[in-house]
Design a binder for these strands. Structure first.
Length: 780
DNA sequence: CAGTGAGCGAGCTTCCGCTTGACTT
């Protein structure tokens, strides 16, 4: 007979807690929410005060049955989900679904998973906070209304299977607007002047010292005049200022900052980071990885302190308590930190190790002393004018936390290295120069978002939660609103004036600027959808929408406001805009652009979003003959394509000749240009121009493919024609009755006989045949 | 993967936030 049942959200947490609580407690996990609005239906009865229609999803039914059975057996059920809006709702759904009785149910919360914290929580149970639950219901229902009313508008007006939502649509807006800012950006040039002075040292040698003119010069004439004035000038040190500077460590990791630093320092995508962190968490090596809190438990600060003293001594310790500044943070967990601070490294995969190392260092550094630096600024006067040069140097007098960890920034490569030391200088000292250079510099356009910098921006706006940053980024890419890609830089020439040996030289140099790798770029579809939503649903796309509505959810949580009132007010404004948008008949399709006329026929040439993406169309539907279509190939965008380029897309398919009595044609399909011959399709390799490719080249490609196809079949057995050894993308494998089986590495596939093949099949199908319920999601 | 698309027609697509699986031929 079980006395106590404790339910938490995560199974890893359950395992740990069970150890602390002993025999009288059974600890199970709910695996997050156990009930939600129906997946495929609207599930909200607007007329009945927004009554939600909840259901237990298919893949949760077995679990819920188990929880029900265990709850029945227990005297007391402790609902120990997280202490935030979602956690409270999970507790409430459990209470409802498991049909718990109030007198047998206790709601408890704890912020750290230690024995004392949990025992303390058990001593201080409370009841479910229905206001907090209602705030969650309001959040959930509002998101469903927005998503399920807006998306169908897009299906009708733009393209089927698109989506819109409170979070994803704003994420897309950020990316589209950044792209527009970049297009509209005007660079301004100015001249930056640097000088190299010679400073004599005590031993008679001289060292070079770099200095920069305190202001920038606007024009080439101005720069030239300035250098001219320096020709016969003398340079004197007018002032030397030394001042101490302190640097403090960054706060411990939250989900968002971990994603950013792992991207900058380790090159991980946000999804990768989360996957590795999950592994570390499940292995008990780090605390929970989805958090917006920078708080460390006392256990962690104490552990850090001991580790720092042990490694570096007392002087390096400085206990700090960080507080969250993030909008809408709910702080149900600790910051992300190592479970045990004494573990400087762990036994895990190479990638996991690197992530752990980052987390360990960041945590330790957050509990370390400030770094102390001495910054020296020398001002150098010019005898012939009022301008001054400044030389700066920096020395670290005490490394403090920098000994362990230095935070990275997105524009690190742009930053000048100031960590150099100035040579010994005296006030009044006169210096010679070796050269003075005026270089033309340009203002920089904003840079495109990376996955991680988009996460940072979303968090700053209070949009999205730690558990959704990675999924949101994947959604907007799946919908093809955004794609990750590179932008080549542009060549730009700049002017450089050098004063050396009392002569001024004038040179033009070139540089490549603005090259970007793995950035988020808006697609045509993303741009069209964004502009459409922004025009008709500007309120939802407003960067402050989430923050404003969150304030109202907080009022609900505090009991100052009915959740249904919030919904009524929102719906009153929102729903009519959906109705009118649907009713609005427009002459042109959303995003359509007329390019001109086809010279031969005079038919209208336009670009628009078709059923399968952006297309060029010649002719209209109301004319007698059907319009012709061509996909927009990569490299073209609806906003910039010209009439000539658009017409060029209709040059395919073209016939290049005949081979084996059958025509060879070049076409352009969903996956790029291809050669069609005798009902076979052969992709054209990259770099081959589909307009220029010759018949001979095509024949070679066709034959190569045939050869590869022939090599695909390694072996087959007369006794069992259904079994084949094939060569695939991942090497040789066995294909048998519609399934594929891996061939062990130490086996030469040619040497396999039928029996060993069947053994492999048998072995692997047994392994795979863990009798789990079939996956709910079906693939098309 | 599959190389399509103005209308005969049915039915489908979609949100955000909480969790971890089952897949890697």
């Amino acid at each position: 007979m079980q006395k106590n049942l404790v339910i938490v959200e995560s199974p890893a947490k359950a395992k740990t807690i069970e150890k602390f609580l002993g025999k009288d407690y059974k600890v199970l996990s709910s695996y997050g929410h156990i009930r939600d609005l129906k997946r495929k239906e609207f599930s909200i009865d607007i007329a009945k005060n927004f009554t939600p229609d909840y259901e237990i999803p298919e893949d949760k039914k077995e679990l819920v049955e188990k929880l029900k059975a265990e709850a029945k057996k227990a005297d007391v059920v402790w609902l120990a989900s997280d202490e935030d809006r979602e956690g409270e709702a999970i507790a409430w759904h459990l209470f409802e679904v498991l049909k718990l009785k109030p007198e047998q149910t206790k709601r408890i919360v704890f912020h750290e998973i230690t024995k004392t914290a949990i025992l303390k929580a058990i001593e201080n149970p409370r009841e479910i906070d229905i206001n907090l639950v209602n705030a969650q219901q309001a959040r959930r229902i509002l998101d469903r209304i927005v998503g399920f009313e807006l998306s169908p508008v897009l299906w009708k007006k733009v393209k089927p299977a698109l989506s819109a939502g409170r979070v994803q649509s704003v994420a897309v807006r950020l990316i589209v607007e950044r792209e527009r800012e970049i297009q509209a950006f005007n660079t301004e040039a100015s001249y930056r002047v640097t000088a190299v002075f010679l400073v004599p040292e005590e031993d008679g040698k001289t060292v070079e010292m770099k200095a920069e003119l305190a202001r920038r010069l606007k024009t080439k004439e101005e720069a030239k005049a300035f250098l001219e004035s320096c020709k016969n000038a003398s340079f004197t040190i007018e002032d030397i200022v030394k001042r101490p500077v302190k640097k403090s460590p960054a706060a411990p990791f939250t989900t968002s900052t971990l994603q950013q630093e792992a991207a900058r320092k380790l090159g991980y995508t946000v999804a990768q980071t989360m996957m590795l962190a999950q592994k570390l968490y499940e292995a008990g090596l780090i605390t929970y990885m989805r958090t917006d809190s920078v708080n460390l438990s006392e256990y962690a600060t104490e552990g850090s302190k001991q580790a720092i003293i042990g490694m570096m001594g007392e002087r390096y310790v400085y206990s700090r308590h960080f507080t969250t500044k993030t909008k809408g943070a709910q702080e149900a967990h600790e910051a992300i930190r190592p479970t045990y601070m004494e573990n400087a490294s762990v036994d895990a995969s190479a990638q996991e190790k690197r992530l752990y190392d980052l987390i360990w260092k960041r945590t330790i550094a957050s509990q370390m002393a400030d770094a102390e630096l001495e910054k020296t600024t020398a001002t150098i006067g010019i005898s012939t004018n009022d301008d001054t040069f400044t030389a700066t140097g920096e020395v670290i007098t005490f490394d403090g936390f920098l000994r362990i960890y230095k935070e990275s920034y997105d524009d690190d490569n742009e930053q000048e290295d100031e960590s150099r030391l100035l040579p010994p200088l005296k006030k009044g000292q006169v210096l010679d120069y070796t050269d003075i250079v005026a270089t033309e510099r340009f203002t920089q356009r904003p840079s495109r978002y990376t996955e991680a910098s988009l996460v940072r921006k979303l968090e700053e706006l209070g949009i999205g939660r730690p558990s959704t940053y990675a999924p949101t980024i994947s959604t907007i890419q799946q919908r093809e609103y955004v794609e990750k890609g590179d932008k080549p830089g542009e060549e730009r020439s700049f002017n450089k004036l050098t004063l050396k040996d009392k002569a001024i030289s004038d040179e033009t140099h070139t540089e490549v600027v603005g090259a970007e790798k793995s950035k988020l770029l808006p697609t045509d579809i993303g741009t069209v959808v964004n502009d459409f939503l922004n025009e008709y649903f500007s309120k939802i796309l407003d960067y402050n929408f989430t923050a404003d509505i969150e304030k109202k959810f907080d009022e609900v949580a505090d009991g100052d406001q009915q959740w249904t009132t919030i919904m009524k007010n929102f719906y009153k404004g929102f729903h009519p805009s959906v109705e009118t948008t649907l009713a609005t008949k427009t002459e042109h399709k959303v995003g359509e652009r007329i390019l001109g006329e086809e010279p031969k026929t005079g038919k209208v040439v336009s670009v628009k979003i078709g059923r399968f993406g952006p297309v060029v169309q010649i002719g209209s539907t109301d004319s007698e003959d059907k319009p012709r279509f061509a996909r927009l190939e990569k490299g073209y965008s609806m906003e910039t394509i010209t009439l000539e380029e658009a017409l060029g897309l209709f040059k395919l398919p073209r016939t290049v000749g005949e081979y084996e009595g059958k025509p060879v044609t070049i076409g352009s399909g969903r996956f790029g240009p291809y050669i069609r011959h005798n009902d076979t399709f052969n992709s054209l390799p990259k770099g081959v121009d589909p307009m220029e490719v010759s018949l001979e080249e095509c024949i070679e490609i066709i034959n190569n493919k045939r050869e590869a196809e022939a090599k695909r079949h390694i072996k087959q057995f007369a006794e069992e024609p259904e079994l084949e050894i094939l060569n695939g993308r991942y090497g040789p494998y066995i294909a048998y009755k519609g399934s594929n089986y891996k061939i062990p590495k130490d086996v030469v596939p040619q040497d396999l006989n039928l029996k060993t093949c069947l053994d492999i099949v048998k072995l692997q199908s047994e392994k795979a045949a863990t009798p789990k319920k079939p996956r709910a999601s079906k693939k098309k």
